[in-house]
Write a protein that binds this DNA or RNA. Structure first.
Lengths: 192, 192
DNA sequence: GATTCGATCCTAGCATCGCTAGACAATCGA
DNA sequence: TCGATTGTCTAGCGATGCTAGGATCGAATC
């Protein structure tokens, strides 16, 4: 069965190439430039090949989103674990979130702005997305405050970060004052 | 000059019709359904007529956004002025914002999610957008807290509301817990 | 009242989009 | 070696935003 295994490996490899190329192209020129024709040309295959891996362009966006969610979860945990003390940890978490969004705008869009056909906030939610939320939850529970459900607190904190990230990136908030905004947010939301 | 005046009136009326129809169609079937052909058919003119009023579809979205911003500003002021006491007023403001977003999702998207070609956060920003921000600022200044710039506080508060609005609307946050989220947000962010 | 002329509007079409059918070639099992 | 299966490509469909160029209509002039 070695032949079949090799084929499966090559197929999986090509799928990774598609996702990585879509992401690269999106980061370079925006998601509008990620057409099936452009993408096909970059991976040096014809258009229909894309559709033997993904049912639609939407699914490709979804695949980029999942990859990004895994990376974001790791980045959040790394930033949080490098800080000690609740206040410092939460601030580091917030900065890491905003930095990820700023450095990977196309990936962030795939995760939270575009329709990647992914399920959110229910049992069908893919693991990487749950895990990214968990990375926030783990580090925020200790500052939720008495009588406040950690998940609820995390949702609010996340929403605030998401608002800052998207409004800043689309030019609706001037980027200069990002740091004082984070300071204010953390000071007010986190208990101690 | 009566003839010319009449023509200008009719032209302005048709422009209002285009914007209102685009908005209506977007609310009914989503912005994806707002194609220039669909829109042209609904106003009972041919496609090119749209381009004698607007340079692009983007500008039509922008026009819907401006109309929406004016409405939102009015809705925010009405809600705030109907409440007395800082805490109640801020909570009413937050609920009014989220309710506007929930009841006018297409308009909200035009304002804050789609590209309507509008300038934000600088001197070229159209008046209705400035005014919507001002409506927030007016009612939040009193709870910004000592030593915190009211504009900065408003930005953070707005970002949090925007995050809640968009994440809820795209199914990324379950809609049931909206009220406790607002309570938590207001309790923590607003000083007194 | 007929005629000219400019403004207004529509038909038709372009390039591009996501996606798919059907032909062709390469590879496999017998 | 041959037939069948798998894989890939060419070509094309309907729909998109937008535009060129001709037709039509109404207002002003003689």
């Amino acid at each position: 069965m070695s032949v079949q295994e090799r084929k499966e490996r090559e197929r999986a490899e090509r799928e990774r190439l598609i996702v990585a190329t879509a992401r690269e192209l999106a980061e370079q020129q925006g998601w509008d430039a990620v057409t099936t024709r452009q993408l096909a040309e970059r991976i040096e295959y014809s258009q229909p090949v894309l559709y033997s891996h993904f049912r639609s362009k939407r699914e490709i966006i979804g695949a980029v989103a999942l990859k990004g969610a895994a990376e974001m979860a790791a980045a959040l945990r790394a930033a949080a674990s490098a800080a000690d003390g609740p206040r410092t940890r939460v601030a580091a978490l917030a900065r890491a979130y905003l930095e990820f969004a700023a450095r990977n705008p196309a990936v962030y869009d795939a995760m939270f702005q575009l329709d990647g056909g992914l399920a959110f906030a229910n049992e069908d939610t893919p693991q990487p997305l749950k895990d990214a939320f968990a990375a926030l939850l783990e580090n925020l529970s200790e500052v939720a405050g008495d009588g406040v459900h950690p998940a609820l607190f995390t949702e609010v904190f996340w929403a605030a970060l998401h608002g800052l990230a998207t409004l800043t990136r689309t030019g609706r908030l001037p980027p200069e004052d990002t740091e004082p905004r984070v300071e204010l947010l953390v000071d007010r939301l986190a208990m101690i």
